[in-house]
Design a binder for these strands. Structure first.
Lengths: 144, 144
DNA sequence: TATTGTTATACTCTATAACTATA
DNA sequence: TATAGTTATAGAGTATAACAATA
């Protein structure tokens, strides 16, 4: 590896913050106009965690139950989620992705990955490896 | 460098996308409640580009002029920006960060960097270098 | 009696359309 | 006549409070 001037953790932190925000902003351009940002976030949650109750969804998305109720209604109307009664607890409902909902999220991921992959392919092999390694480390940081 | 199993650009792209979104979600926790997300974004734009007209701000933030007008009014009332007539063109206005506005953005950055810096400091030196290098590469990708 | 979800109502943010002032 | 900004009004999205059903 060529000898770079050393960066302090403070400099690295600022650099990582800035580059992360810019990348997110860039990836956001590859999105769907079918649903709002909040609605899309619910679909992603459901794909990641499977079917959830209304209260669980509201907590995960940091919104109130009435707000989530409305969001779920919109998604049901759009055919992107299914709402079924909980078999074990009559008070609860079970919100699950429909096939169309899963397809919408998967397609969006694919579009973003395709753009990102094309950019990565333009980098040198050792640069690609550096990014792969950093991505794993960043995930470890964010998930703690 | 130890021999890792090679990742394809597609795998690296997906990994980078996921870790980036998680980091943003995590950093968002360190925010201010003084202004809304849209208002904060305007402050960041003004710090980056200097004083801007209402129309320029609306275009950069991808909102309409009436919406930006309202946002700017809120920020003026909060003492975070100043609104002055354009000396060269009587139709235009000039929106600029106030000292308080600059302080708010700088403080938020510092809070986020402090959190991130603490996490980075827990990594091994070569891991920190990997992230610093990747951050520079990511910025190059996002800015093109 | 506590918990889960829903309805009623209000507030914030953004949009479109119409208007004013300046170039 | 065209452009920059503002005002009037309406549509999403979210919040709090009150309510219904189930545990």
């Amino acid at each position: 590896m060529p000898s770079h001037p050393e960066s302090t953790p403070a400099e690295t932190a600022a650099q990582l913050r800035i580059s992360t925000y810019r990348l997110v902003r860039r990836l956001r351009l590859q999105r769907t106009d079918d649903v709002s940002v909040g609605q899309y976030s619910v679909l992603v949650s459901l794909r990641a965690h499977g079917a959830l109750s209304l209260g669980d969804l509201a907590e995960r998305e940091h919104v109130t139950a009435p707000s989530m109720n409305r969001t779920v209604n919109c998604l049901v109307d759009a055919g992107l989620v299914q709402r079924t009664p909980d078999p074990d607890d009559g008070r609860r409902i079970r919100v699950a992705l429909s096939e169309a909902g899963e397809r919408l999220v998967d397609d969006t991921d694919r579009r973003r990955d395709a753009w990102l992959e094309a950019r990565l392919a333009e980098l040198a092999p050792d640069e690609q490896r550096a990014i792969a390694r950093a991505a794993a480390l960043i995930r470890g940081i964010a998930d703690r």
